[in-house]
Write a protein that binds this DNA or RNA. Sequence first.
DNA 1: GTTTTTGCAAACCATTTGCAGGGTC
DNA 2: GACCCTGCAAATGGTTTGCAAAAAC
Lengths: 144, 144
Amino acid sequence: MPTADTILRAFDDAGYRVTEPRRRLADLIGRQSGHFTADDLIAESRRRHLGVGRATVFRSLDVLAELGVVERLDLPSGDHALVACEAAHHHHVVCSRCGRSTDIADSGLAAIIADVGRRSGYQIDSHRLELFGLCPSCQARPAG
Amino acid sequence: MPTADTILRAFDDAGYRVTEPRRRLADLIGRQSGHFTADDLIAESRRRHLGVGRATVFRSLDVLAELGVVERLDLPSGDHALVACEAAHHHHVVCSRCGRSTDIADSGLAAIIADVGRRSGYQIDSHRLELFGLCPSCQARPAG
DNA sequence: GTTTTTGCAAACCATTTGCAGGGTC
DNA sequence: GACCCTGCAAATGGTTTGCAAAAAC
């Protein structure tokens, strides 16, 4: 889970300018515990009078998603959300109650993909795996 | 890939009424070769003067998605689409060029999920796996 | 100084909803 | 005949865009 600093460095390293709105946004993202939406950030920016506008939030999230610092999630409910994460190909287990997410390794997935490719004849070049369930602390604290 | 008949039977079996608009929609869906959007169906309904309205398309797709006859897809591009498929839990390989999709079996995925659950401590209760790549015929017909 | 980035507000687009009329069982 | 379903048009909600001013390099 990147900190605000990591996010700013990502902007910088990729040749984007480090601006005040981006600093504030990075901070906002760093504070998110689970998954979040553009709207969450916009609302919080407004609530705390940070002056970061809608457009900036969306534009920055686009960049961050492209840089892999943030990843778009498609929840089982059909809703969309984002999670901050390390840049590198990986997958998530997402808590269906609190939204917290954990990165997971491929642990055997590559073999499955190769197998599917062989059987189906497809030349597979990208994939996505998303797991959903209760995280340890939500299991410990039944019902909500 | 269900035919129009299969789709109508799904409506019927689930206690929904088999109406003229639904007949036409089922036919439209049956004609789709790859993935498609609600808008594709609406446009085609209009083009062919079938008189199936927006609302009906969306409402019916909702039902069909719930029945599992149609499945929502999240493409790597971020776009959304639908595919007609057999009702049962499964996954897809989707052609990144023509959109055609093939169902695949779990072939070992269950073991991976169990493993991830063990390692992460999450109580995993749902998952989604989507694979993307070139289907055999698009491989045979390079560039497009 | 040049180029990127910003905020605002308006534009967009896909999807949803309210409702009165019509079709299905 | 009761209830479900439909089309329409208006409402919605999230995301994008045009633009002139401001900030970064």
